[in-house]
Write a protein that binds this DNA or RNA. Structure first.
Length: 563
RNA sequence: GCGCCCGUGGCGCAGUUGGAUAGCGCGUCAGACUCCGACUCUGAAGGCCGCUGGUUCGAAUCCAGUCGGGCGUACCA
């Protein structure tokens, strides 16, 4: 057992299944025990778990739900150490209360698993790649990248916790039109540095940022004017290489400062240089999905549900970004053998999802192996006012600007605090507040409070005891019970987060456990209680600390022992 | 035009494969420490789940339509 909630549900399903067979000789639901609905009721008065199975079976059995419920309840209440009670309520719900053995099992599992409590084998060791941020190497990272960074990183951790073999990857778009523009912009600044501002026109769609000028000047400082006389191509390549390496280094460092470490940085240019892009197009051609028109090569995307075809190779002979991306994703599945690939990107790219899937299908790769997390844009605010630019630079706020102002923990927690597909409001004033209205402090405080409690009792000579020497059935106050339930929910929360690709559930879960702990802490004193009760409660607090620490670790947020 | 996402108390958001009285945080109001960290807790007020119809024992959830907001629909990435 490593998932108490899932196990309890499965066990209840099996019991109900057996009772149905016992009472009616059949299970009228298709799918057998698996299909029996069992859930945790919102209202705790309705028990620990409940089932609406009687309503679902009513028609097939030709009996009113309550009649079915009566027959089942009779069989289900026969002695067993798992169920404490089974009651009939409302239109025919079966409401179950579990015996307190279950609570003890939950806490013993936390003790046994420690830092691994919450790990489940949902992923079955399948290899999954999470590709995220993949910001253009032509400039610094934006706030949007900051959200994508946390989202991707936390998602990767969740998947790891859920039993996948995870690889984090950054895809560097170091080829194509924008890199051309990058090179042209650098060249212009370089030549202007040598021959004066009027020497040449700045390219029309070039990058006007100060960072480009800076890069060109650095290049000049190192190489002097030696590249002013050589042929254009050599000059551009040298400048481009120089600029890219500098920028990629910076992306790497900014992300590291943010707590994000990639397993792999993958270069688009490699796909072109090795001929993999054209090989991929050849493959599509052999399968009959490519045609020529107006001097360009087109992919018949309309055969796969898209509303228009896509250019793969332009009139000018260059491949489109789309062609490279199809090759890149083919590489993920075919050459590197990932079972699943997740792409995290901005909602403004949502049009890609269907086109990417079309490409995979055309290549004979099951498109369901490719999944997407789309995130909406971020709105930065300060005290209710929208913040557009950095006070210091007057330019759009970059990730490193943000980290100059906001602690890493707060930034990481905030950017993951909402479902990806909703617009996220990031209140910079709130993020630095050390008060309960700031959710990250609320959670961290709960952790610190428990640590401090443990330390204090230790000083008084009270060590936490092993569960084997405790009577956990002493924990029966409502606050104790609901804290145990909250702790029990963690593995299932990890499972659902992984299944839905939704790491923000972990934030909400942590806030819940923390609230549950604080309530417990206020209602149930530990110091000064009779030894047995004191030790049981201390153990419960210790378990709560472990769960909070594990959850925070998934988010890449620290779990401080004091604040 | 076509396509995707989002409409839930004043604000920000949850709500699992349809389930019982729609929750949480902030804010508002009223309370709780000579006692384990008050960075905390307890309670109250506050909602036609955008609107209309449909599916059924049962809808915030599924379907159709409609209104409002965001985005996409390049031989850019």
């Amino acid at each position: 057992m490593n998932n108490p909630v899932r196990d309890a549900k499965d066990r209840l399903r099996a019991l109900i299944h057996a009772a149905l067979r016992g009472a009616f000789g059949e299970t009228p639901l298709e799918g057998g025990a698996e299909a029996i609905p069992v859930e945790i009721p919102k209202n705790t008065d309705n028990g620990d778990f409940s089932s609406s199975v009687c309503m679902a079976c009513s028609k097939a059995l030709g009996l009113p739900p309550r009649k079915i419920a009566e027959r089942l309840a009779e069989l289900l209440t026969k002695e067993n150490d798992f169920l404490a009670s089974c009651e009939i309520a409302g239109p025919g719900f079966l409401n179950f209360k579990l015996s307190d053995k279950w609570s003890g099992d939950v806490l013993r599992l936390v003790e046994e698993s420690g830092a691994d409590y919450g790990r489940v084998d949902f992923g079955g060791g399948k290899r999954v790649m999470v590709e995220f941020v993949s910001a253009n190497p032509t400039g610094p990272m934006t706030i949007g990248n900051a959200r994508g960074g946390v989202l991707g990183d936390a998602l990767a951790s969740v998947l790891d916790f859920a039993g996948y073999d995870v690889t984090r990857e950054f895809y560097i778009n170091d080829a194509g039109h924008q890199i051309e523009m990058f090179a042209l912009s650098l060249e212009a600044r370089y030549l202007q540095r040598i021959f004066g501002e009027d020497y040449c026109e700045f390219p029309e769609n070039g990058y006007h940022g100060e960072d480009i000028r800076q890069l060109a000047f650095e290049f000049y400082t190192i190489n002097g004017s030696s590249y002013s006389e050589c042929d254009q191509r050599t000059r551009r390549e040298a400048l481009c290489q120089f600029g890219l390496e500098k920028n990629i280094r910076r992306l790497h460092d900014d992300l590291e400062r943010y707590g994000i470490i990639y397993d792999n940085w993958y270069r688009e240019s490699g796909l072109h240089n090795s001929g993999y892009v054209s090989e991929t197009i050849d493959m599509l051609q052999k399968r009959g999905h490519i045609y020529e028109s107006d001097g360009a090569l087109w992919f018949r995307a309309t055969s796969f549900g898209c509303d228009k075809d896509e250019v793969m190779r332009k009139q000018n002979g260059f491949f489109t970004y789309y062609a490279a991306d199809i090759a890149y994703h083919r590489d993920k599945f075919e050459r590197r053998g990932f079972d699943m690939a997740v792409d995290v990107f901005g909602a403004d790219h949502h049009g890609h999802t269907i086109r990417f899937r079309a490409g995979m299908e055309a290549l004979g790769i099951d498109p369901s192996r490719l999944r997407f997390v789309l995130m909406q844009l971020v709105r930065l605010t300060r005290d209710g006012e929208v913040v557009k630019v950095s006070k210091r630079t007057g330019k759009a706020i970059t990730l490193s600007d943000l980290l100059d102002e906001i602690p890493r923990d707060a930034a990481r927690f905030f950017f993951n605090n909402r479902q990806p597909d909703t617009h996220l409001e990031f209140d910079m004033a709130l993020a630095v507040k050390q008060e309960s209205e700031n959710p990250v402090y609320y959670v961290q405080y709960a952790h610190a409070r428990i640590c401090s409690l443990l330390a204090m009792l230790r000083q008084e000579g009270v060590e936490p005891r092993r569960s084997a020497r405790l009577d956990l059935t002493l924990l029966k106050q409502p606050e104790e019970i609901s804290l145990i339930k909250a702790i029990a929910a963690f593995p299932e929360e990890v499972t659902v987060s992984a299944r839905e690709l939704e790491p923000s559930r972990i934030n909400r879960y942590l806030a819940e456990v923390s609230a549950s702990f604080h309530s417990f802490y206020n209602a149930c004193r530990i110091r000064g209680q009779e030894d047995g009760l004191r030790d049981a409660r201390l153990f419960l607090a210790w378990c709560a600390r472990q769960v909070i620490a594990n959850g925070l670790r998934i988010l890449g947020v620290t779990a401080p022992e004091e604040m």
